[in-house]
Design a protein around this nucleic acid. Structure first.
Lengths: 333, 333
DNA sequence: CACAACACTGCAACCGATTGCAGACTCGCC
DNA sequence: GGCGAGTCTGCAATCGGTTGCAGTGTTGTG
C-alpha cells in the first residue's frame, strides 16, 4: 500500500537506484534529477522501508531497550532518556518489559536482536554468563550493571551510599538499618558494599534487615523488622521500598523523622509526594539513557573496539527532604 | 553473523525452501527431513529474520504501541497488558512514548508503521482527522479514544463517573467540584459529560474548576480553586491529579475526608499509597491492552471489514478507600 | 508390468531496498 | 575532429526469507 522506491522511480522517470542515491548520497546525483526525485518522493509521501534497507546495509536505524518493569517509575525515566537521545540521531527505539524475568529478558533480546542494530539492557536480570553470550551475538550496552567486557553506563553506588550515610551521621545517627533489594541484584550488592564502607569510615553501625522485593510492598514487609533493629535511621534499597516503609511506619504510629529517619535511592517522582517527603539520593536516570545511546552509536560507528570508551559512571545527588532529621536523644528513651 | 536459513539448509543437506517449509508448514514436509532440519536449526540457534520474512509475506509479527507518557503510571499498565497478550501469540511489541505531543506521535507512527503489522495508539493526542488518515495508511487500534470508523477499546466513562457520583451522593454530598484534565482530551470530555449527567440525575450541583495538566502538579495547581468552590467533595480527572489535590489540601490544613472528600479515576498503584488512601474508580488498564491486541489480531486475520467487532467497552469499578467520607454537617460551620 | 496418483523437494522469482560495475553522455583540449 | 576524463545513470546482484511451479521418486492399482 505505501509507496515503494519503484513508485517514486516511475513517477520521476528514473531508475530505483537513482532514487536511492538521490535520497541518501546527495552530490553524486545531478541536481536537476535529484530535485525531480525529491518532488516525486514528496507527492507520494515516500519513506524508505527501514527493514528492507537493513537487510542489505546491516543497519536498521533501530535500537532495542529492555527494562525489567515499566511499572517501576525508575525505568520510564531511563526510557525517556533513551528515546530523546535516539530521536536526535533519527533512530527508533523499541522498548520491551521483561517482567523481572531473566528468561523473558533473554527471549526478548533474541526476538528483537535481528530487527535492531543493538540492544540496551537496563538493570538486566540475566546472569553475567548469559549477558556475555548476548553481547557476542549482538551489540549490547548495559545500564546499571557491570559485566566484564560489555559496554555499560552505571551509577556510582558507593558514592551514593556515602552521601546518604554522611548525611545521617551529620544528623547524629550512629546505627543505621539497611533494607536490601533482591538478593541477586547487582546494584543491590553494590549499594550494600557502599553502605558498609561508608559506615565503617564513619565508625557507625549497620544493621542489615534482609532482602526484599524492590517495591512498595517490599517496604511494607520490611518495616517491622526495621523497627525491631532499634536503629535511628534506615536506608532502603530504593525509593519504592522507602515509601513502603514510610507507610507501614505511619500505620504503626512511628514518627518519621522524629523516631526514625528514612532515606531512599533513585529519587522517583513519587518521592516528593510521599508523607513526609522522602530524603533520597537522586540518580540521573534520563542521563543514563542518553549516555547508553551514545555508547551504542559509538559502537555502531566504528567496529574497531578499544577506540571508544566503553564505560560511563554517573553520579548521584543527595536530595534532603522531610524524612530525615536529627537522631532522637538517646538520653530520652 | 547469526545463522541464516541457508546455513541451516547447508547443514541439513536440503534447500532453503525445505527449511522454510519444515519450520512453518509442518506436515507438508517429510517427517524425517523435518527432524533433520529441526536438529540443524537447533544446533545453529537459528531464528528466522522477522524483517526479511515481513518483506515477502507482508506480515512482520510485530505491533507498535504509542503512549503519551510512560512516566504517567496509567500507561505502563496498558503496555503490560499489550505485551502479555501479544506474547501469547508470539508477536513482539514496539513501545514508543510521544511525550504528550501530537506531532511526535504521528511521526512515531509513521516511523514504525513499515516495520509492524499495525499500531495501537493509547490516548492519542492527534486530531480525529489525523487519526483517520493514519488508519487508512496502516492498521490502527485505539485505546481510550473513539474516532469514527477506527477500531477502539474504550472505558465506559459515563458509568465510571456515575459510580463516583452515586458514592458521594450516598455519603450526603450535594455539591461536587470537578477538576478537569487537558481541555483537548477526549476522555476528559467524556468524564465531564458523565459527571454532569450523573449529578443531574441525582439533583446535585457540579462546580467545574477548569482544566489542568493530568499530573501531580496539575492537582497541586487546582487545589486552592477547589477550596474556593465551597464544595464538600471533589472529583478529579485522574488519580495523579487527585493525589496532587490531597497533597496541597494537607498542606493547607484541610482535612480529607472530614472537610472534603476526594475521588480520582484510574486506580494507579500510587493511589493506595496516598495519605489518605484514595477512593477512585478502577479502570481495567491491563485488560484494555489485551483487548486492543485482540482487536488488532482480528484485523490482521481477515481483511474483510465488518466481520469482526471493532469496538470494545470496558467497565470501571469503584474502589472505596479513605479519601471519601460523609459530608460535613452543614449546620456545623 | 505399465501407468496414474501422490508425496516431497528444489528451482527460481520476488518482497524493498542498496551498491559495484559498466555504459552513455558531455565536455575540454589538442 | 578525435580522444580522454569526468559525470551521471542504469543493470544486475544481493540481503534473508517465502512460495508457485515443475520435477523426482515412490507407491498403488489394473
Amino acid at each position: 500500500m505505501p509507496a515503494t522506491i519503484r513508485d517514486v522511480a516511475r513517477l520521476a522517470g528514473v531508475s530505483p537506484s537513482t532514487v536511492s542515491r538521490a535520497l541518501s548520497m546527495p552530490g553524486v546525483v545531478n541536481p536537476t534529477t535529484r530535485a525531480r526525485v525529491m518532488a516525486a518522493a514528496d507527492t507520494l509521501g515516500y519513506a524508505p522501508n527501514k527493514a528492507a534497507r537493513g537487510l542489505i546495509t546491516g543497519r536498521t536505524g533501530n535500537i532495542g531497550l529492555v527494562v525489567p518493569d515499566l511499572a517501576n517509575p525508575f525505568f520510564p525515566s531511563v526510557v525517556k532518556g533513551v528515546q530523546a537521545r535516539a530521536g536526535e540521531s533519527d533512530v527508533s527505539v523499541f522498548v520491551a518489559d521483561s517482567d523481572e524475568n531473566a528468561t523473558t529478558e533473554i527471549g526478548l533480546v533474541r526476538a528483537l536482536a535481528k530487527q535492531v542494530d543493538g540492544m540496551i539492557l537496563c538493570s538486566p536480570r540475566a546472569s553475567d554468563h548469559e549477558l556475555i553470550g548476548l553481547a557476542q551475538e549482538t551489540n549490547v550496552v548495559l545500564i546499571n550493571r557491570l559485566v566484564e567486557g560489555v559496554p555499560a553506563v552505571t551509577f556510582d553506588n558507593r558514592e551514593a551510599m556515602r552521601l546518604a550515610v554522611d548525611h545521617l551521621v551529620a544528623l547524629g545517627h550512629r546505627r543505621i538499618a539497611w533494607v536490601g533489594g533482591p538478593k541477586t541484584s547487582w546494584s543491590n550488592k553494590q549499594r550494600m558494599i557502599g553502605l558498609v564502607a561508608a559506615a565503617n569510615d564513619n565508625r557507625v553501625e549497620v544493621a542489615p534487615v534482609g532482602w526484599f522485593q524492590p517495591s512498595y510492598d517490599g517496604g511494607i514487609a520490611a518495616a517491622d523488622q526495621v523497627v525491631a533493629k532499634r536503629a535511628t535511621a534506615v536506608v532502603a534499597y530504593n525509593d519504592l521500598v522507602a515509601i513502603g516503609l514510610l507507610s507501614r511506619l505511619h500505620a504503626r504510629g512511628i514518627s518519621v523523622p522524629d523516631d526514625l529517619s528514612v532515606v531512599g535511592v533513585d529519587d522517583i517522582a513519587m518521592s516528593r509526594m510521599a508523607h513526609p517527603a522522602l530524603t533520597t539520593v537522586r540518580l540521573p536516570k534520563q542521563k543514563s539513557g542518553r549516555l547508553a545511546v551514545e555508547l551504542m552509536l559509538g559502537l555502531l560507528e566504528d567496529r574497531d573496539p578499544g577506540s571508544i570508551s566503553l564505560r560511563a559512571t554517573l553520579h548521584g545527588e543527595l536530595m534532603v527532604r522531610a524524612s530525615t532529621g536529627v537522631a532522637p536523644d538517646p538520653a530520652r528513651p
